[in-house]
Each structure stands twice: as structure tokens, then as C-alpha cells.
Write a protein that binds this DNA or RNA. Structure first.
Lengths: 225, 225
DNA sequence: GAAAGTATGTAACATATGTTACTGAATAAA
DNA sequence: TTTATTCAGTAACATATGTTACATACTTTC
């Protein structure tokens, strides 16, 4: 059976560290480790979140429970994953969903103030923590932008401009199937085909099976604004 | 003219601190202050972001520029606001947009490693920084959720369930006009009226000008999943 | 090179929501 | 009380996209 040090070394917050440093952290920092059984509730929706959680062993699910009793799985977390990292530092620090252990599991909890202490003492942990939060912000911002496009043509324009940025050519190699492209844009394949044809008719692009040729980049950009 | 200390005291990262502590920070921490004129470019889209920015004086805009030359204002930042806080700690630390000074302005820059040092030395700054990032994550998550609803009925169900959580009653007082409600949900007012009527016909709700009565909460929840 | 399987384009129809304009009800002003 | 103003519901029509089915073109396999 693996020791606590190795388990923790897997965690995104500590994987800059070697075994010795992790052992050092475990000596210096306040924490607690709680075991949960299958279907054990790690946190209820609405509970105060006063600590950062780290999955040391097992696998857990984040679930939204509705008054009707129906539940929906939002995320699955495995060994080394953390949870509550944004909640614990927010003003209204309450869990927005329920966290359930799916197997026998061991969960490490570090209180808010001890996370602060941990970050103060170990800059590498601080950096990793910041990176986790930052990447999350960028990912969510991207998602908001994508979801904000109003029409299919907007989405296609954005998709084309992204490829253009990468390939820096007016003749774009489309590396995925229409089906995949449609899924990526969140629409039906025939809808995508239809709109591509319309854009061709409107003189914006030309296309065949695996390339899209930009005919009027101005108009494509104009569309995105 | 206000001193640097007072200016910095306005910043969200330092407003737990008194004047003395801020002065202390200014002595201990590496930073630089750059002046910009009207329309001066503080950062170009694509530039490496190696430092956190703080607006000490003046007002600046974050803009997306398209190849066609067209620009769109994404955010406006005023005295005390910070920028680049997520970018600087992300893996690909490049500005996704251009930052322009709109007046004469003074901008403080603190390099990534000095932000780490600052946070290590001053737990209150660390806490505030974490809070800023966390609140941003929660705000964006909420936005993603709202944008993800597929139909108008989904949006209305979500709106109703939110009011239900607050008012804890099946008879909900609607505190805003239909026009506002429609704007809030991002649809046209007649579309909203029409869908409310359909939901009444389907036995989900009843409503009049300023109340909505929940008739079948199960079905409303069911819909959101 | 023929046959089978898969991806794409196309068409007809269904549905959701936007758009515009109008009517009647509620509210405020005179 | 009357009049004016704002707000909500309603209806007719336009448009975007989903849905389903099918035909055609490409790719793979033998």
C-alpha cells in the first residue's frame, strides 16, 4: 500500500516537489485525513466549505441533487485531484453541489488558513495553486465566449478564424470529419453542411471535403463583432 | 496629488491593509511604475505577460483587435483595478487582447516571481488574490451554466427555481417587469410571454402580471436535468 | 477492380424563437 | 373621473436550426 507522501506527490499542487519536500510539508502543515465508504457523503450541497479537499485514494463524484430526488453527476474526481479550491476562498463559501465517495476513499482536508500558511511557506505550491485557478479561469472564459455566439454562422466564423490563426493560410486543412466538426460546434451535421453551403453562396468561403478556403476574411471577421 | 501608498491602498489586493502596511509593502517588494499617455499601448495582444498590472491612475481599456482593423472594447479598468492576474500564472502566459490607456495613466507592474514573494510575505494579499480568482471562477461557472440552457423553457425553469430557493414558497412574487425578465433571460418579451402561456397550458405553472405560481415543481426540476 | 462500409451533401418537413404590430389592462397624471 | 402612458398578451409572419431520410461520393477491404 502506498504511503501518504507518494499519494500526495500525485496531487497537482505538489508535483513540483520531490518526496522529501512532500514529507516535510506533511510535518509542517495542519491537515486531517478522513476515510469514506462507498456512497459516503463528503460534503452536502449548502454546507460551509472551510477546507480544501484532496483525493488521496478512491474515486468521488460531484453531484447536483434536486428536490425531486433526482441527481446529476457533474464531475468525477480521482486520486490526486482537488476540490473546493475556488469555493473555500470565495465570499459565500458554501458547496454548490454534493460530493459523494464512490468507492472506499481517503480524503485529505486542509483548512483555509492552513492552505494560506502552506502557500506562504512553499512558493511552489502557491504557484501550482495559482496556475490551477488561472487555467480554470481561461478555460471558462473560452467556454463563455463560444457559448455566446448567437448563430451557427458565428460559430463557424470563429472556428475558421481559429484555424486561420494556427495555419496562417487562406486554404485551411480541416483535420476532422464534418460529424466531429458539428459536434465541436454543438450542432447537427446537416445544419452545418447547409450553413457552409450558404456561406459559399454568399462568397465568404469555398470548401470541399477536407479543406475550407477563405474568400472574404474581412466579412468573416466583421461577423464576429 | 495622492501618493503611491494611497493609490495602492485602493487596490483590491491591498484594501485589508492600513497605510503603514502598504508603505511597508512598497519598500519590500520589487515593482515598477510606468506612465502612459492617451492611446498608449500598455500591452499588445500576443505579448508575453510576465507581470501583474495595477491601475494606479487613469483609465484603461481591454480591446480585441481584428485583422480588418476593427476593435471591440471588452472591459474598462479604473484606478485600483488589476489586470493580467490570471494570464500571468497560466501556462501560455500571453495577453489574449490589447490593453490601451485611455487617459494619462500610471500603471504598476509586479513580476510573476515578485507576486509570489509578495503573497508569501503578506498572507492578507494572498487571501485577497485567491478571493479575486475564486469569485471570478464562480461568476464564470454561473455564466456557463446559464448559457448552456438549450431552450427558453429551460431558462425559465432555472429562473423560477432560483426564485423558489430564495422565497421558499410556491407562490412567487416576481419583482421585475416582463421586459426585464426577458432581458435577464436573453430573449424577446413576446417570446417569453408565449412560453409562459405554454407552460401554463402544460400545467407547470400559473401566472399573472406579478406572480408565478408553481403547479408542478417535479416537472420543472425534471426539465433542468 | 468490385463490394461493402462510411462520410457528406441534399431535401422536405417540424419546431423554436425572433420580429412587428396591435389590443386591452393597469397605472399614473391631470 | 378622465386622460395619458406604460406594460403585458396576442397574433401573423419570418428565420434558424433540428430531424429524418436518402443519394452520392469517397475509402477500405478483399
Amino acid at each position: 500500500m502506498k504511503g501518504l507522501t507518494e499519494r500526495l506527490g500525485n496531487c497537482v499542487l505538489f508535483n513540483d516537489m520531490d518526496v522529501k519536500e512532500v514529507a516535510n510539508v506533511l510535518e509542517k502543515v495542519e491537515y486531517r485525513v478522513n476515510p469514506f465508504g462507498k456512497e459516503g457523503i463528503i460534503a452536502h450541497e449548502g454546507d460551509e466549505c472551510t477546507s480544501l479537499g484532496i483525493v488521496l485514494e478512491g474515486y468521488i463524484e460531484v453531484r447536483k441533487t434536486y428536490a425531486s430526488g433526482k441527481t446529476v453527476v457533474l464531475t468525477k474526481l480521482y486520486e490526486g485531484n482537488i476540490f473546493g479550491e475556488a469555493i473555500v476562498f470565495s465570499k459565500l463559501h458554501r458547496y454548490p453541489s454534493t460530493i459523494v465517495s464512490m468507492t472506499d476513499s481517503k480524503i485529505m482536508h486542509i483548512n483555509r488558513r492552513d492552505v494560506i500558511a502552506l502557500c506562504s511557506s512553499y512558493p511552489s505550491v502557491l504557484e501550482r495553486f495559482m496556475e490551477v485557478l488561472s487555467e480554470r479561469i481561461l478555460m471558462l472564459s473560452r467556454k463563455v465566449r463560444e457559448l455566446s455566439y448567437e448563430t451557427l454562422r458565428h460559430k463557424i466564423c470563429s472556428f475558421i478564424m481559429e484555424m486561420f490563426e494556427k495555419q496562417k493560410s487562406n486554404i485551411l486543412k480541416v483535420p476532422i470529419t464534418r460529424q466531429n466538426m458539428a459536434e465541436h460546434l454543438g450542432v447537427q451535421r446537416p445544419s452545418l453542411s447547409r450553413e457552409l453551403i450558404r456561406m459559399k453562396e454568399d462568397g465568404l468561403i469555398d470548401f470541399d471535403r477536407d479543406t475550407i478556403t477563405i474568400k472574404d476574411i474581412r466579412a468573416l471577421e466583421e461577423f464576429l463583432t
